[in-house]
Amino acid sequence: MSESMKEKLAQAMADLEAVQSAVARAENELGQATATARSRDRMVEATVGPQGELTGLKFLDGRFRNLPAPQVAASVVEAVQDARAQMAHRVIETFAPLTRQGGGLAGTGGIDVDWERVFGSALDDGNGGGRGRAARDRLRDEIHEDPDDNQHRERRR
């Protein structure tokens, strides 16, 4: 093997070790990370872990007791989705140096990651006009008391 080839191989191995070290640091940093968000109505607070898993849910006041279940559910979903979006963006920011030009091995353009595929709807935090916020708004729009349902409840009593 020529000296030039040995130098290239040594540089590639050093680059690989640097990338592996950077990934290990990022994984360590995110390992215990959490993100917390509140619903717009300030009724629900949700906390998610580094993989977007729900780790905590708080009802911040007693208003939920007087609201219809679909409205409470919408607040829970909203808070969880917002917390997941925060965590997804934190993961992307943490791994961004490895995904940019020069972030990967020598001679490569960095690691190509399809973040939409990785995180799906979690990336939609409502600022981009995407699917998630619109879906939550549609759910909120559907929350209403149907007069027919109230009549049926009264008849059953």
Results as ranks from 00 to 15, higher is better:
127 N>T: 14
127 N>A: 13
127 N>F: 13
128 G>M: 08
128 G>S: 06
128 G>E: 05
128 G>I: 03
129 G>I: 00
129 G>W: 00
129 G>M: 02
129 G>V: 04
129 G>Y: 00
130 G>T: 00
130 G>K: 05
130 G>P: 01
130 G>R: 04
130 G>I: 07
131 R>H: 14
131 R>E: 14
131 R>M: 11
131 R>I: 11
132 G>C: 11
132 G>A: 15
132 G>M: 10
132 G>T: 13
132 G>S: 15
132 G>Q: 13
133 R>C: 05
133 R>Q: 08
133 R>S: 09
133 R>F: 07
133 R>M: 10
134 A>P: 02
134 A>C: 01
134 A>W: 06
135 A>W: 07
135 A>L: 03
136 R>E: 09
136 R>T: 10
136 R>N: 09
136 R>M: 08
137 D>S: 08
137 D>L: 08
137 D>K: 03
138 R>A: 10
138 R>I: 02
138 R>F: 11
138 R>Y: 13
138 R>S: 10
138 R>N: 07
138 R>Q: 12
138 R>M: 09
138 R>C: 01
138 R>V: 07
139 L>Y: 04
139 L>M: 09
139 L>A: 04
140 R>S: 03
140 R>T: 07
140 R>K: 12
140 R>E: 00
140 R>V: 08
140 R>W: 01
140 R>M: 02
141 D>K: 01
141 D>P: 07
141 D>G: 07
142 E>S: 12
142 E>F: 04
142 E>W: 08
142 E>Y: 02
143 I>H: 02
143 I>S: 10
143 I>P: 00
143 I>R: 07
143 I>C: 04
143 I>Q: 01
144 H>R: 15
144 H>Q: 14
144 H>P: 03
144 H>K: 15
145 E>Y: 15
145 E>R: 14
145 E>N: 14
146 D>Q: 06
146 D>K: 05
146 D>T: 04
147 P>L: 05
147 P>T: 00
147 P>S: 09
147 P>R: 00
147 P>V: 00
148 D>C: 04
148 D>G: 11
148 D>Y: 13
149 D>S: 11
149 D>A: 13
150 N>G: 15
150 N>R: 15
150 N>Q: 14
151 Q>S: 11
151 Q>G: 08
151 Q>N: 11
151 Q>V: 11
152 H>T: 15
152 H>F: 12
152 H>A: 15
152 H>Y: 15
153 R>G: 06
153 R>I: 10
153 R>W: 08
153 R>T: 06
153 R>V: 07
153 R>Y: 00
154 E>F: 04
154 E>H: 08
154 E>G: 03
154 E>V: 07
154 E>L: 10
154 E>N: 01
155 R>M: 07
155 R>E: 02
155 R>T: 05
156 R>P: 06
156 R>I: 11
157 R>M: 12
157 R>W: 12
157 R>S: 10
157 R>H: 10
